[in-house]
Amino acid sequence: MYETLLSEATHLGIDTYEKQMPHRLKGLYSKNVILINKNMETSYEKTCILAEELGHYYTSSGDIVDQDTIEKRRQEKIARTWAYEKLVPLSKIVQAHKEAIKNRYELAQYIEITEEFLDDAIKRYKEKYGATVNYGGYTICFEPLGVIEWIDNSF
């Protein structure tokens, strides 16, 4: 997935570099350049950060590094939501159900993201939809995470 996001960034004219950065800073987007902290432990973590930085490309404006205003925090939330919907779309949750994925750990591995990112995505979906959402003949439950498949009774 990381390579797919790198290709998307390149297609958009965004240069992406992995660089030594302060530990607390995992990624940064500015003026068609994305920096990813080289010291992250896994490619899954890099994938999550790259998706968020692409979210800033699509949704943010100005310098929001310091989260000192409500507007800057709002832009951060919008960029993260974009990343959640990009990497953990509802269709992927249903697809994982069809593949007999049994728990959050397996789901994170299946999607190639961190468990923390998955948990944050699920929290955001709960904020957006409530406890459940209907999606294409399925009901996705967010707590506990699960998918209910509806039987077609038109026979």
Rank of each mutant, 00 (worst) to 15 (best):
L25S: 12
N32H: 10
R24D: 11
N32L: 05
Y44G: 02
I36T: 06
V33R: 05
E41M: 13
Y29I: 02
I34W: 01
K26M: 09
V33H: 05
M21T: 11
S30F: 09
K19P: 01
Y17P: 08
H11K: 14
K31H: 13
Y29F: 13
L12Q: 13
Y17A: 10
T47E: 03
Y44P: 00
E8A: 04
E8D: 07
I49P: 01
L6M: 13
S43M: 08
H23K: 15
T42N: 02
Q20V: 14
G27D: 04
R24S: 12
D15A: 14
I36Y: 04
E18G: 11
I34Y: 03
P22C: 04
Y44K: 04
R24A: 09
L12V: 04
V33P: 00
P22L: 05
D15T: 14
E45M: 06
T42Q: 01
L12C: 09
K19L: 14
R24H: 13
I49R: 04
E45V: 01
N37E: 09
E41G: 12
T16H: 06
I36V: 14
E45R: 03
E18C: 08
N32G: 02
Y17W: 11
L6R: 11
G13R: 06
E8T: 07
N32C: 06
Y17G: 08
K46C: 00
S7R: 12
I34Q: 03
I14D: 07
L25F: 12
Y17T: 08
T10K: 15
L28P: 00
M40A: 07
T42F: 04
M40T: 08
S30C: 09
Y29C: 02
K26V: 05
I14N: 09
L12M: 11
E41N: 13
E41Y: 07
